[in-house]
Computed example of a mutant assay.
Amino acid sequence: MKVTIAYIEEPPFGWTDSDGAAIGADLDLADAVLRAIGVTQIEHHLTTFSELLPGVGAGRWDMNVPLFVTPERANLVAFSLPVWAIGDGFLIRTGNPKALNSYASLAARRDARLGIIAGQVQHESARAAGVSEDQIVSFEQQADAIEAVRSGAIDAYASTAVGNRILADRIGGSVEAVDHEPGEDGSQCPPIGAFSFNKSNGDLINAVNQQLRLYLGSPDHRARMAKFGLTHKEIDPALVC
């Protein structure tokens, strides 16, 4: 049995290492779950964020790495059970010269520019907090947004808090990560992420969900995720929210 899973370059969730292998927390979780349900061949397909949903919807691959669940996306694909719950944060230049620590703080600085990846949920979160469209700069690739922060073309790049912490540690020196305060959007639980599939692929969806019920929160799951910097803070809310 072969399954092809699409991923994007977004550490710590997924990326291509120097040997050309696809690695990351989401891919490690997929590997554990798929092997447990009898998949013997797993193929990784690198793509862009904007192609994830159209690609799986068109059957170009079987499943996507987890992404945030929204009602709009649920109209296009079938989501698995939640596998993580993660709040947003900023990647900024070291020293945080404009004191940006939330979408609201950025909205209050009319001279501040925010980078987002086109189509990601951070766009709507920023708009809901009052960030205007003329403050938002869209990018197709994370690497371009990071370079824009480093060069000063934008003041902050919005992504997951844990992802930005990993990026800041890897880049070092010129950038730092700032986590947003919990509940900025008024919710009690951080946004949840889940694998996504073509809605017609019911057998795979059901098998994955059955294994996720058994595996999520287990010692092996927590140990695997810890290697990539995901802790109980990202895992536990997904089990109850």
Rank of each mutant, 00 (worst) to 15 (best):
V3R: 03
T4S: 14
E9T: 13
F13L: 03
G14L: 02
D17Y: 05
S18K: 12
S18W: 00
D19Q: 15
G24E: 05
L29F: 04
A32P: 05
V33W: 09
V33L: 07
R35Y: 08
I37T: 09
V39P: 02
T40Q: 12
I42G: 09
H44C: 07
H44G: 02
T47Y: 01
T48F: 00
T48K: 12
P54G: 05
G55F: 03
G59E: 10
G59W: 05
N64F: 01
N64R: 04
V65R: 13
E72A: 13
R73S: 11
A74M: 10
A74F: 00
N75Q: 15
S80P: 09
L81P: 10
P82M: 03
P82D: 06
V83K: 01
W84I: 14
I86M: 12
D88I: 01
D88A: 13
D88E: 13
I92V: 15
G95Y: 04
P97D: 04
N101I: 10
N101R: 14
A104P: 00
S105M: 03
A108C: 01
D111G: 08
R113P: 06
L114T: 08
I116V: 15
Q120S: 10
E124F: 11
S132N: 11
E133I: 08
S138R: 14
Q141H: 14
A143S: 15
A143N: 12
E147V: 10
G152S: 03
A158K: 05
S159I: 01
T160K: 11
V162H: 12
G163L: 04
S174G: 12
V175E: 05
V178Q: 06
E184V: 09
G186N: 02
P190C: 00
I192Y: 00
A194Q: 06
A194M: 05
F195D: 02
N198Q: 11
K199F: 02
S200K: 11
N206W: 01
V208I: 13
V208D: 04
Q210K: 14
Y215Q: 01
G217T: 08
G217A: 05
S218D: 03
P219H: 05
D220T: 12
R222N: 10
R224I: 15
M225L: 15
F228E: 03
L230R: 06
L230S: 05
E234T: 13
L239I: 07
V240T: 14
